[in-house]
Design a protein around this nucleic acid. Structure first.
Lengths: 245, 245
DNA sequence: GGCTCCGCTTGATTGAGATCAATGCGTCCT
DNA sequence: AGGACGCATTGATCTCAATCAAGCGGAGCC
């Protein structure tokens, strides 16, 4: 276990200093549960992967052999129905973990929505590391618990909120999930398309577009560009999100 | 830590033999990760609670001091919007675990939907037990991971499935979640009301009722009573659930 | 520059499921 | 037994978001 495996990039170049040690995403990730001394063990089983926007890291139905840690960029996780209807179950950002699902095969797909880098682990290697470092398991459990709470919020959104409430909720949640926050408060980076927002919110592209326009017209937000927004009246946005309007 | 605390029932009567040792739900629960020798430690921090149908074990917004293990009966977990709209995020049965959520306060409510018994733990006590028995943490992580996968399925259901597809999916999932399975295959115990089904599926009572009637008329299911159904054509039900019809 | 493509917005119409409104039916209570 | 209550079913109508259908506008390309 934990033996050094062949890596796609030059091993020699990385042997001297741990890549994990200088990883900008470490602070946001489960890796932070490991002490600096343990990073070598993590490094040894990690494989660095770069993805272009649109490329897949996980394909629904394929054998679940890998786990991933996002180190930069954004990823969409989704499930498909046979006729092509898509539900995006979450967006992942730097520090997020994916692939822990039990079961022989992946029950979902995951693709980069912008250029991304990630660490890939063989499930068996990672399991072995967990056995040696229980703090890692604690961190994973905490993260899974967080995600479960987020999933419950999303079920409330999908099952009971109106289109406008869903859009407002999304704009409020997005920045606190994404560790790459623009410096200014109220500034939202939106790395996904309208279609992706729609598939995440259980709506259509048109409804999302209309909803954003309505928020803009009401003076709640400004659309700086397709991928950047500014919240002018956060308290109003919060009220809309909770159906108090 | 792990000291014997005052219990609502007669301690003397239970000191001689572990209640956990004879617990019918143990096999389905995270408790099964503990060896028989460790059950004493679990017993020491467990408080047995009985609930009548409708009584609450967790109230949204209250301090999150307890964890629970369901030992019999059924429980609904739900979130509310300020105006009263309700989303049931899950039903719990014997063996299920609830309350691990991070955060100071509970972010959801949980109530018995039929008479139920459960084990209650103080969060701090349970955390201490986890520290002593890492296998428990592994079991919890595995369970959380399962629930996460189930949550993703539910998001697909709520975001992208039609009313008919949701109802069919529910009838397929229900029996495999509930460990109290009637002996005959195709026989479904439905401990919840139509209103609860509706709030779980993101529908109204009327739509659920109409959907069930439609399945009955199509010869897919039979309604033996309000709380018992029989699936005559499971393959048909599966096709409907996946939108292949 | 002008063309095309792609993602987004806006408008018109439709439809699935919500809402409103009786009615049915089993259980419990006196 | 009769009545009343709670839950479920069934029917009629309405509404919000989906669908259908143009345009718009920026980015990339020849």
């Amino acid at each position: 276990m934990l033996e050094l495996r062949s890596l796609p990039t030059d091993c020699a170049a990385r042997r001297s200093d741990s890549v994990c040690a200088t990883c900008g995403a470490r602070a946001f990730s489960v890796c932070s549960s490991l002490g600096v001394d343990d990073l070598a063990g993590l490094d040894a089983i990690a494989e660095r992967v770069s993805l272009k926007s649109g490329e897949a890291l996980i394909r629904q139905g394929e054998p679940a052999v890998h786990l991933f840690n996002i180190t930069s960029g954004s990823v969409r996780v989704y499930k498909l129905l046979p006729d092509g209807r898509r539900q995006i179950t979450g967006f992942l950002f730097a520090g997020d973990f994916v692939g822990l699902a039990t079961g022989q095969d992946y029950a979902f797909s995951a693709e980069a929505i912008e250029d991304a880098t990630l660490c890939r682990f063989k499930k068996s290697d990672y399991r072995a590391l967990i056995r040696e470092r229980p703090a890692l398991e604690t961190a994973l459990l905490e993260r899974a618990t967080h995600e479960l709470a987020a999933a419950q919020n999303q079920m409330l959104l999908l099952g009971r909120k109106t289109a406008q409430e869903r859009i407002a909720s999304f704009l409020l949640d997005l920045p606190e999930r994404d560790p790459i926050r623009p410096t200014e408060a109220g500034h939202i980076r939106v790395p996904m398309t309208r279609a992706e927002m729609a598939d995440y919110l259980g709506l259509t592209i048109e409804t999302v577009s209309r909803g954003l326009t309505k928020l803009k017209t009401a003076g709640v937000i400004r659309l700086l560009s397709l991928n950047e927004m500014l919240v002018d009246r956060p308290e109003r946005l919060r009220a809309i999100a909770e159906g108090e309007a």
